[in-house]
């Protein structure tokens, strides 16, 4: 089993809903983004094309971050999801340096870092709940986990990630245009594999040679 994602670029409208859903799902602190939307353009007037890419950790099959990590804190689960064990991370940031997609963030609490969404106003109720439900270890590296908590809980209930909402990543669930698809890349009959094959999905920057698990469909 290897979880993966397919993103249809023509459907993406750059609404940032995936970014916000991810932030809410994991109670991410200020200035930490596990999911980003990159917006640019190519070509010259009048033949200009707007580019919108929803990006996150690619959960590469051959991840540079796992090789770089000196402690084993960054490791790959059997289902292909690359995770960081906050209890083992020493904060050397070699993984951040090594990631060609720059999909990792360093969480600082204090030392001049913004700790509240409304500086000087105290924590909101949502932030207070987050500190209890989804505590983040300051001084460690963070990244997208493909909503592994939802996947694990969903599988335990007999649900199918990518099909059942309760077992699927928050960014996929929230996407208003259904641009994001999720499923098992190792299952040749999965919907995501069919979609990648039919619509000629391609990994983001295959030349980085890390075998990403996220495919983009032009």
């Amino acid at each position: 089993m290897r979880w993966g994602m397919a993103i249809e670029l023509k459907r993406c409208i750059g609404c940032y809903a995936c970014v916000l859903a991810c932030k809410a799902e994991h109670f991410l602190p200020p200035n930490i983004f596990w999911n980003r939307v990159l917006i640019g353009e190519k070509g010259k007037y009048p033949a200009v094309t707007k580019l919108i890419y929803s990006v996150r950790c690619n959960h590469c099959a051959d991840p540079a971050c796992v090789k770089a990590c000196p402690t084993g804190a960054t490791h790959q689960r059997e289902d292909g999801i690359v995770v960081v064990d906050e209890d083992k991370c020493v904060g050397c940031r070699y993984c951040m340096v090594a990631c060609p997609y720059q999909a990792r963030s360093f969480y600082e609490d204090g030392h001049g870092a913004q700790t509240e969404y409304y500086p000087g106003q105290g924590l909101t109720e949502h932030e207070k709940i987050g500190k209890t439900l989804y505590p983040h270890e300051p001084g460690t590296v963070q990244k997208c986990v493909f909503c592994k908590e939802r996947i694990d809980a969903g599988l335990a209930q007999g649900l199918k990630p990518g099909v059942d909402r309760d077992a699927s990543p928050a960014c996929m669930n929230i996407c208003p245009t259904k641009a994001i698809h999720f499923g098992d890349l190792d299952d040749p009959y999965s919907d995501i594999n069919r979609l990648i094959k039919e619509k000629k999905g391609h990994p983001f920057h295959a030349e980085f040679d890390t075998q990403p698990s996220i495919y983009y469909i032009d």
Partner: peptide, 9 residues
């Protein structure tokens, strides 16, 4: 940032 864990390096 986690100096006491240096041995993990």
């Amino acid at each position: 940032s986690k100096r006491m864990r240096f041995w993990r390096m």
